[in-house]
Amino acid sequence: MTDPAVAPPGQGPGLRGRRTPFVAYVGLAVVALGVAAAICYGTGVGGWVLMLVMGLVLFLAGVYAVVSRLEGRRAGRDRTWSVLIHCAFVLALVPLVSVVWTLISKGSERFDLNFFTTSLNNIGARDPDGGAVHAIIGTLEQVAIATVITVPLGILAAIYIVEYGRGRFATLIRFFVDVMTGIPSIVAGLFILSFWVLIVSPVYNNGQPSFSGFAAALALSVLMLPTIVRSTEEMLRLVPAPLREGSYALGVPKWKTILRVVIPTALPGIVTGIMLSIARAAGETAPVLLVAGGSAAVNINPFNNNQSSLSLYVFQQASDASRFAPARAWTAALTLVALVLILTVAAKLFARRNRISR
């Protein structure tokens, strides 16, 4: 009796037939890069980028030819596309790894206690010291205020659209949310500048316009709100309808079903959308520059006087003529990324803990 795992003579391999060894792929990669290098550098038509592209094309052609020969055409096409997908993944990963490596390598120069305990107040161009504590405080306060404002509004707006909204009014809300998603950050800053700084702030500031961290938080809220609404809306729509129907069948009111069933089910996705909006707000520079003004000293009062942020600090230090400023800018950028990472991990753990406890 013929073993089904072994293909009969003259036919292609079976389900467990011959497989192309890993050494063959390594050899194909070496040969492809060698041929590409010989063509590019031998003729002088290009550099290492063209060599890599040409080597990839030759490698894919070699994989298709060898695998088709050993395993059949179908396996050859499948393996070629698999190699292409893996190469695309590596190519997409290169910029991310490059950014992280650059931030760590250049930002570690001033990653010391002085940077996190001092400000730029009374720091001259020839002074190597000076930190970003004032910018860190400003970022935390502005983002916290913006989060407190936008998270309840965004979640409630999404609940209305999904659970209650019907007809043209709900469609109009979705339209304006989509439009707000594409608003440039400087437009949000100009809106708060013309409304809050120039019209509202003189009312409580003896008739004089006043920059403040709260104004920056309002501008960040305009940018955060559409992201939270759209992400929460999509997560609420992914909640299975039988969960709602089962709750209604038990006599639970609609508002309690939303509060105890729908929102907890969609909570991980909602938290992800909130953290995306916080990350965007923490990295905005134009609104803070327009309505908070920036400051070299610590200001813990977000409702009065100028206030800085880490993104504005990076912008100002990167454009400063001092030879010590670039190091401060890189360290501030690394600090900003670390803050967003810490907040994201903490939010994910919080959402996961709540989900497990239920």
Rank of each mutant, 00 (worst) to 15 (best):
R126C: 08
D112P: 05
S108E: 10
D127S: 10
R110W: 00
T139E: 05
T118V: 01
T117W: 11
G124Y: 06
G124H: 07
I123N: 02
E109K: 09
L140H: 01
R126L: 15
I104M: 13
L140T: 10
E109F: 13
G131F: 09
S119A: 14
N121R: 15
G131R: 02
N121H: 14
I104N: 01
E109T: 09
R110S: 07
P128D: 13
S119N: 08
N121Y: 15
D127L: 03
L140M: 12
T117A: 11
F111C: 09
I123V: 12
K106P: 01
R126D: 14
F111L: 15
G130F: 02
S105F: 07
I104L: 14
L113D: 06
F116Q: 00
N121S: 13
S108H: 08
I123Q: 08
A125G: 08
G130Y: 02
F116K: 08
D129K: 12
V133I: 15
I137E: 01
F116W: 11
T117R: 05
G107A: 02
T117D: 06
L140K: 04
L113Q: 07
L113F: 06
D127H: 00
D127F: 01
N114I: 03
A135Q: 03
R110L: 06
T139P: 01
K106C: 01
N121Q: 13
T118S: 14
A132E: 08
T118P: 00
F111E: 04
G124S: 11
G130H: 03
A125P: 14
S119E: 12
N114Q: 15
K106I: 01
H134A: 12
S119I: 06
N122C: 02
V133G: 01
A135I: 00
F115N: 11
I136D: 01
T118A: 10
S105R: 07
G130L: 04
G131I: 04
I137N: 05
A132Y: 02
N122D: 12
E109S: 06
P128W: 05
E109Q: 11
I123D: 08
L140F: 07
T139W: 08
F115V: 07
D112S: 10
A135W: 01
I123E: 12
F111P: 00
N121D: 15
